[in-house]
Design a protein around this nucleic acid. Sequence first.
DNA 1: GGGACAAGT
DNA 2: ATGGGACTTGTCCCA
Length: 654
Amino acid sequence: MIEQAENARLSRRLATIQLDSPVTFDSETYHVKPPHQDQLIDLLRELGFTTLLKSFQPSFAPAETNEVKTELVQDEPSAQKFVAGLPKGGALGLQCLLSPGSSMQADVQGIALSTGDKTSFIPLDVRTYMRPITALLHDPTRTKVVHDLKATLLVFHRIGLTLAAPYLDTMVADYLLNPNRRDHQLETIAFEVLDHRLGTGQKENAAPQSLFDEDTGSREKAAEAASVLAKLAPALTERLSDQGSLTLFTNVEMPLVSVLAEIERNGFLLDVEALHRLSKELERDLDKMIETIEGLAGGEFNINSPKQLATVLFEKLGLRPIRKTKTGYSTDEDTLTQLATQHELPAQIVNYRSLSKLKSTYVDALPELVNPETKRLHTSLNQTVAATGRLSSTEPNLQNIPVKGEYGLRIREAFIAPAGHTLLCADYSQVEPRILAHLSQDPRLLAVFAKGEDIHMATAMEIFGLSASHITRDMRRVAKTVVFGIVYGISPFGLASNIGVSQAEAKKYIETFFEKFSAVRALMDRNIEEGKTKGYTTTILGRRRPIPELQSGDPTQRGFGERMAVNSPIQGSAADLIKVAMIDVNNALHHEMPHTKMILQVHDELIFEVPEKELAEAKHLVKTVMEETGKKLGLSVPLKVDLGTGHNWRVAHP
DNA sequence: GGGACAAGT
DNA sequence: ATGGGACTTGTCCCA
C-alpha cells in the first residue's frame, strides 16, 4: 500500500523532470509482488529462518486438510480393540499431549499412538484401561517413534510409565542428517521428508466434537503428530542408512537418549549456603573495585558496558585503540592486557570483569536453578545442538563451570556429594591427541601412546630437538599449545598470539611439528580434500558434518571451512567415543552397582555420585569400561582414564 | 534480537 | 591494512 503511493508519487515527479538519458520508468516494475511461495519456504528452511518461516506458513495453508482419523480410547474394551486392530510390529508413533507449562513441571494429559494408518488418542485422567496400552509401550517388536524422546522419557517416568526400546527419535535422526541446522522441529522434518504441513489439520475455532469433548484442537494435533511420526520412521531410517549413519543412530544415539534422561533426572547437589556466602564476599570485592576503577577513570560509568568503557579508555584517557569490532573499539581481555602497559585502569577492568562474570553467571544464578522438589541442579543435556557431535548443556550449563582462579575453584567446591556419598570424576587423558594418532597412524605418535609416554614432553623433544632432561616447563607448554593448535587447524597467527611468540617463530614450530609427524599433515590434507570432494567430513563411527564453506569463493570462508574439516573428525570422533563409554558404563552400573549414579558429562569427563562403601568398586568399573571403549571401537592407541574422588567437585577433579 | 564478552573442553 | 584455532552457553548492554 505504501509502495503504491510512493510509486505514484514518484511517477508524477519523474514526469515533470526533463531527462537527458532515455530512461523509461514503468512504475509497475516496482510493485512488490507476492513471494514465490514454494521457493521462499524452501530457502527459509534451508537457511534455518524458523521464525520467519512460521510467520509465512499460515498464509500458505493448503486447501486440503491433514486431519487424521482418530479413535478415542477411554476404557479397557476400546483399548483392547485398538491394540488388536493394529498390524504386528513396525513403527509406533507416540506423541504426548502435555498440559501447558514448562516441560519439567508439565503433566501428561494424554498420549496419541499411531501406526500410520491407525491412530488413537488416550486421555490419561483415568488409568483403568491402561493395561493393553502399556503392553504396547513395552512391545519390543515395535519401534517407538518419538520426537524428543528424552523429554518423553522424563515425563513418562514422572507419571510412572515406561517406554521400552527400540526407539527412533525423529529429532535426533534429523540431527544426524543435518547436524549444521539448529532447528530440528517436527514441523520442519515432516514438511521436508513427507511434504506434510503439520498443524493444519484442525480448523480455526473448531466446534467441539462429541468425541473430543475437551481441548479438541490439541488432541487432534497430537494425533496428527503421532501419525506423521509413524510415517517418518521408514523414510528417516532409509536416509540414515544411505549416509552410513544408521549404526551410529541405532547403537549409539538412541541408547544414549535414556542415559541422558537418567543423568538429568539424577542431578547434581549444590551447596547453596556456600554460594550465598561467596556472593557476599564477591559483592564486597566488586564494590571496592568499582571505587578504584571510577577513581582511575575520573568519574562514574557502567563498567559492564563495553561501549561506555571504550569511551573512557579511548576518549577520556586517550589510550590508543588496539583493534576494532563491528560496532566500535574492542575492549576484550587481550586488548586490555596490551593497554595495561600504558595505564593502570585496563588491568583493573580485566579483574573486575572476571569476578563480575563469576558472580552473575554462577554464584548468583546457580542457586536459582535448584529444583525445589529434589533440591538438586538438573541440567539439560542436549543431543542435537553441537554440529560436531558433542553434547551441550543448558539451564544451567554445567559444562563451563570455572576451574581456574581462587573464586572459580570456590564455585566448584559448591558442587557436592550428599552425606555418605562421594564424587568420582573420570577424565579421558588427551583423547583428542590420541584420536589424532589413530586417524593419522603417525608412527611416532602411535609409539608415544603405546609406551604411555607424556605426549607434550615427547612433542617438545621433537620440536626443539632436545633430550628430555633439556626440556623446560615453558618448552613443554609451547609443545602442548602446538598440539592443540594442530587439532583445531592451526595458523601461525593464532598460535603466535596464543604462546606469545612472533608469527615467524610460530610458523617454525608448526613446520617442525609436521616434519617430525608427517602423517599428521597427510591426515589434515586428506580431511580437507575429502571435505571438498564429498562435501562433508566423517568420524570413526560414521558421523557426518557437511562443510559448505569449503566451496566458498571467499578465502576467509574457505580457511574457516578447512579448519572445520581438520577439527570436526577429531572432535566428533572423541564425542562418538565418550557416548559409547557412557552407554556401556551406565549399563554396567545398572547391573553391578545400581546405587552409583552418573550425574554429568563434560566432553571428555564423566562424573558420578557414589556411595562411599562402593567407591573402590566403582572406580575400577568406570576406569575399565571407559578404557575398554577404545579397544571396542578399534582404536590403534590405548585410552587412559584419570580418576579423582572427593566430597566436592574441586577436590574430585583429576 | 544481536553484539561483545567470558566461562568451559 | 587487517586478519586466520574448534565447539558451546549465559549475561549484559543497547537499539
